[in-house]
């Protein structure tokens, strides 16, 4: 749509585990300030691709380039399954994690950080849950807390891995509106989603993956209406 500068460029990149490529031949660019949805059937390699974009997984072939000299801060929203929810943390501690880049291991949370945390919790509607233990939260409440952490992180590139699994519709819409606000602040958003309606409603671009020739490949990568209409049923 816009002629914004590319933030992340992929050149025929393969991503996978233990030498086995799960996703092959991804080429294209994510432009700064866009909101892109990553869709596809289960097991096609969406999470794998996301980890490659985050830099946590080196490409098995091809290249991934960041066009910001590494200055863009990246924030990652993990899948629920990657978290140890039995760990004795409360919501406030989770949100406070977002301040890591600024406080490091040893600096205390000063008044400024605390204000940021409070504001983030208010914005996501969980201010009342500050002292609740994580294992007592519903799916929606947990996602709000993770989003609050994202806010505190104040990153330029937001990568979200299945943020709306097991979340009620009301929360999904609220959080998508929040993503939209963040996007309008100039941040780039890339998220793995399943609900096509949500994608059409909030996400400007879509990257669709499908299985072909024994691996996940890009079927379409374009503004949402075009990408979703061209998608295989």
């Amino acid at each position: 749509m816009s002629a914004a500068a590319p933030l992340l460029t992929l050149e025929n990149a393969d991503f996978g585990w233990g030498g086995q490529a799960v996703v092959r031949g991804v080429s294209g660019a994510f432009r700064a300030g866009t909101m892109t949805a990553v869709v596809g059937p289960n097991g096609v390699g969406k999470s794998t691709l996301m980890k490659g974009l985050a830099g946590a997984l080196a490409p098995l072939a091809g290249a991934v380039r960041r066009h910001d000299d590494g200055r863009a801060r990246v924030a990652w929203l993990p899948q629920r399954a990657d978290l140890d929810l039995a760990f004795p943390l409360d919501v406030h501690d989770l949100v406070a994690m977002g301040a890591w880049r600024r406080t490091g291991a040893w600096r205390g949370l000063g008044a400024a950080e605390q204000a940021r945390i409070d504001a983030a919790m208010a914005r996501t509607g969980i201010a009342a849950l500050a002292r609740r233990r994580l294992d007592t939260l519903s799916g929606g409440q947990l996602q709000r807390a993770l989003f609050a952490r994202l806010l505190v992180q104040d990153a330029d590139l937001l990568l979200l891995d299945e943020p709306f699994a097991a979340v009620d519709t009301e929360t999904v819409h609220q959080l998508c509106r929040l993503l939209g606000e963040l996007n309008r602040e100039g941040r780039t958003v890339i998220a793995v989603l399943h609900d096509r309606e949500v994608v059409r409603a909030y996400f400007g671009d879509t990257l669709a993956l499908a299985r072909a020739d024994g691996a996940g490949r890009v079927q379409a990568w374009a503004p949402t209406p075009a990408a979703l209409d061209g998608e295989a049923p």
Binding site: A54, G55, W76, D82, D84, F87, L94, W100, G104
Partner: peptide, 27 residues
């Protein structure tokens, strides 16, 4: 006392610190 915070974070969300440098691995 020194590694308390990164240790806790690493227990709860191992990916979080990995994205932000090597602190998690050191902890």
């Amino acid at each position: 006392a020194l590694i308390f915070r990164p240790l806790v974070y690493e227990c709860f969300d191992p990916g979080f610190l990995r994205m932000q440098g090597r602190a998690g691995a050191w902890a």
